[in-house]
Every structure is written in C-alpha cells, then in structure tokens.
C-alpha cells in the first residue's frame, strides 16, 4: 500500500483531463476539487457524508467527495458536474423544474447520471434507494422523480 506523509504531488484524472496537484495526505477530494482545481460544482453540505451535495463519480460510481481523501482518488477516473455537458438528466432537470436554490443539484445530477448509466430502466424502488443519499430541502422531490423519468425517456430516444 502506498503511503503519503507530507505534501505530495498527485496526478488525478478528472473529467478526462490529467491534473497535477499538490495535496496534503488528509485533504479530502472535495477540498482539492474546490480549492485547488476551481471545480466548485461539488458543494460542501455537511462534510460528513450525510447530504450528498458533494457527490462526484469515481470510475462511474457515485461517491461523496467529502469523505474520500484526494490521495484515494489517484488512479481512478473522476467525473464532476463540470464534466457533464447537456446530458439527458441535466436537460430533464431544467424541463421538470427539479431544483429551486440549486445547491443540492450538482450532487443529485451526478447521482442520477450514475444510476441511469448503471441501471437505465431503474424503477421507482431503485430510484428511491439510490437517491436517498441526497437531501433537497427546497422541492418536495416530486420534480426530481419526474426528471429521472424524463431522462430515461430522453436517453431511450422517446
């Protein structure tokens, strides 16, 4: 196992690009993304893994970047909201008004995106299970459910 002691250079693959960054071994991935790479789409909401606002993808799987160390991300493909461009779920979020203040939105979209890539025909129980890791305080979740359904239709070419 690789050990890190002091500030060290990491090579991270983020949104398909190679990014070199100096980190402390106890820097979270969220901190490095936001403060060192200017990728502020992932949001701190609780920094305790409870709210999902910081969700990014690691090798396609949603992870909470506030409880992952940056050094753990080395060698993995990281995708942040900045790496998504006009995806079906982003379009569906706009069309279904699936956000209000928008602060939880990047985390929700990353989680939805991963779910739809993993289980394109996710049923309601699956949607509930996946998206229960994110908190939205503005909507009553109704529009988010609709947006997932719409994204499934968009992706299915309907």
């Amino acid at each position: 196992m690789k050990s890190y002691k002091d500030y060290t250079q990491l090579i991270l693959k983020i949104n398909g690009q190679i990014r070199k960054v100096i980190v402390s071994p106890n820097d979270t991935l969220l901190h490095v993304l936001r403060e060192k790479l200017g990728l502020t789409g992932a949001k701190p909401g609780c920094e305790n893994g409870d709210c999902g606002a910081c969700t990014v993808l690691m090798d396609g799987k949603p992870v909470k970047s506030c409880i992952i160390l940056a050094v753990e991300a080395e060698g993995h493909e990281i995708t942040t909201i900045e790496g998504l461009k006009d995806t079906p779920i982003q379009r569906a979020f706009v069309e279904e008004s699936a956000f209000q203040c928008g602060y939880c939105t990047p985390g929700f979209i990353m989680n939805c995106h991963a779910m739809l890539n993993t289980i394109p025909d996710a049923d309601y129980d699956t949607i509930k299970e996946w998206l229960s890791s994110n908190i939205c305080r503005c909507t009553g979740y109704e529009e988010i459910k609709k947006a997932v359904k719409k994204a499934q239709k968009i992706a299915g070419g309907l």
Binding site: G41, T80, E82, V94, F99, G102
Partner: peptide
Amino acid sequence: EAKDKVAGRL
C-alpha cells in the same frame, strides 16, 4: 439561472 444550476456553474 436554470442552465447554470444544472451545469454546476452558478
């Protein structure tokens, strides 16, 4: 601001 919100740009 919808497009900026879903792009994480706001």
